[in-house]
Design a protein around this nucleic acid. Structure first.
Lengths: 336, 336
DNA sequence: TTGTAAGCGTTATCAG
DNA sequence: CTGATAACGCTTACAA
């Protein structure tokens, strides 16, 4: 039912080549024919077929974004930034939910390849060798978002997790806390697990505070439930702590919930600092003090980098985004 | 760098027609040539070009999903369901963030039209006449998700808002509450504003309880901040209430935050019930009792309906999804 | 069972 | 300034 460039050409009494020139803002036609053609386009309500264009131009103006999860506002914030930057340049984004599943991821990659998308943003998960090799073969640019790889020269945008964790811990120390526990993610997660633990430990050491294995809880993930369980265990192992650094906001809010159940007042009896600054951080009771990642900006940045690579295909530098403490009500001064 | 069907044909020493038949599982070739071709495909790592296929088949295996916001877990839950169902049939989803902006929406619709997507899911916002007309012209199926329209025969999937609100209010009444306030969304929002207010009022009336304008707060939206402000005003206007029904979880959690600031204990001094059952509901302190919408299932349902329409192009019925109360800790019995 | 060739809706390279 | 015409990578009659 859609009209084609042929219909326009016929109605305007010109060749399709001329119509093509006009809709692509090229040169080589008179004002008069331009007007004639534009009127024909208007009259028919013609809109060019991006599929046909994609076939010949080898550019689909579509990018693929891979997410391990589609469930927290971390994703929405990231996605929101990507979507904005992408739409601003007239492209669109296809979302792919991999569930951290290798097979699903490969299937998605194949789908994206068949669709001949222009580029890939790979978020929040380790870039396995298999993925890298496949994407390399696809021959499209890719940028890593909220993750990075040491094995290959792929540009990324993320905060420095180790540094951010250090900042969070130091913040607690500055408030007078000396016995500080940590609820961490997976210590085998080399991207966002280990570095945050390292940051915590470094801060302790730099302040001559004892590092105590009992004060660190290792989890599988970064979820609310992990946080709930963790606080209970932590309190059993190290009842004397006055503050805890949680490696994600969900973990932190889980801990707050646990504290509430246990009758422990936050921050009066226990201070808690989170990591991420999701929207839930300001909704919690008490509002969560946390180290903020500029998630939306990171998404925008990643998309913009991708488009830059697309246009110039020169190498591009990675970006370490700034983090900062957002102080709310879940941490209080600790008298010495 | 990608190989084409021609390369495969040449390597296998057959015509491209034969290759096409084989990769499309048609009939009309010997086992021997099939084997030969499959080997060639394997050797080259050939993957069909979906763009070229789309051009000729008039099917892009891509759908567009329009969201007014990309910021809450309501969206992620919906999206997650859509994504799953879509990927299960080998299609992909393009996300469009309209910001409830008419101009942006129209631009998106145009983009989707140029991309020749197969269908549209329109979520959580009123389907303006202008949108409807445009989509009608696009001549692709559409389904409404978490919204509906009275002006046109467009299938939708949503819960019955009025009924769900009634259920929530009745739940409060069953717990012994008689003075029940409501924090509502926009009363001019005919989809999810007005019906929830009506449901609340009906429940009151059916139980011979007084309906008092002062006990209802009208907001612009459904946000956390609206909820914070609302509770303060509500308490000023009607200090004797023992329970409140909030028209969204964010509203409810905003109210809980306000109560906390005001030194009012939830649920001991004030019971609060929400609406949506987002993931934040279980993370709040106290955990929020709320009426649940099966968001992920709704997303899946909408996508499946779309594909059904695509395959059969017969008319399809709308679905009223079931709601239910999820009882947690924010509502308590009220002694008479 | 197989191959040839005509499209699908564009863009781009030629001539004129 | 304008118009044929050959791609782009595929599917599908129609022949062989």
């Amino acid at each position: 039912m859609s009209f084609t460039i042929k219909d326009v050409a016929k109605l305007a009494n010109v060749s399709i080549a001329t119509v093509s020139r006009i809709i692509n803002n090229q040169t080589g036609y008179s004002e008069k024919t331009k007007k004639k053609v534009l009127e024909a386009i208007e009259e028919l309500g013609y809109e060019p077929n991006a599929v046909a264009r994609g076939l010949i131009n080898k550019r689909t103006h579509t990018i693929g974004v891979l997410f391990p999860k589609l469930s927290s506002t971390l994703v929405t914030d990231l996605l929101s930034g990507i979507e904005k930057a992408t739409h601003d340049v007239g492209s669109s984004v296809i979302v792919c939910h991999t569930e951290s599943n290798g097979e699903k991821t490969m299937k998605y990659l194949q789908l994206l390849n068949e669709k001949r998308i222009d580029g890939i943003i790979f978020t929040s998960a380790p870039l396995l060798e298999e993925y890298y090799q496949y994407i390399k073969k696809m021959n499209v640019p890719m940028v890593l978002l909220s993750t990075e790889t040491y094995a290959h020269p792929v540009p990324y945008v993320k905060v420095n997790d180790r540094h951010a964790a250090y900042t969070a811990t130091q913040f607690l120390i500055n408030k007078g806390h000396k016995k500080i526990g940590m609820i961490s993610g997976n210590k085998d997660d080399i991207i966002s697990g280990k570095p945050r633990i390292d940051g915590y430990i470094s801060a302790l050491q730099d302040n001559n505070l004892l590092v105590d294995e009992k004060k660190i809880i290792f989890n599988r993930g970064f979820s609310f439930y992990d946080g709930m369980d963790s606080l209970k265990i932590l309190l059993k192992q190290a009842p004397d702590i006055t503050a805890v650094f949680a490696a994600s906001d969900e973990l932190a809010i889980g801990a707050i919930s646990s504290a509430y159940q246990l009758g422990i007042k936050v921050p009066d009896e226990l201070s808690i600092i989170g990591y991420d600054n999701l929207s839930i951080a300001e909704m919690s009771v008490p509002p969560l003090t946390t180290v903020a990642q500029p998630l939306t900006e990171m998404g925008e940045m990643a998309a913009n980098m991708l488009f830059e690579m697309l246009d110039s295909d020169k190498l591009i530098e990675s970006r370490i985004m700034p983090h900062k403490i957002v102080e709310r009500k879940s941490v209080r001064d600790q008298e010495v």
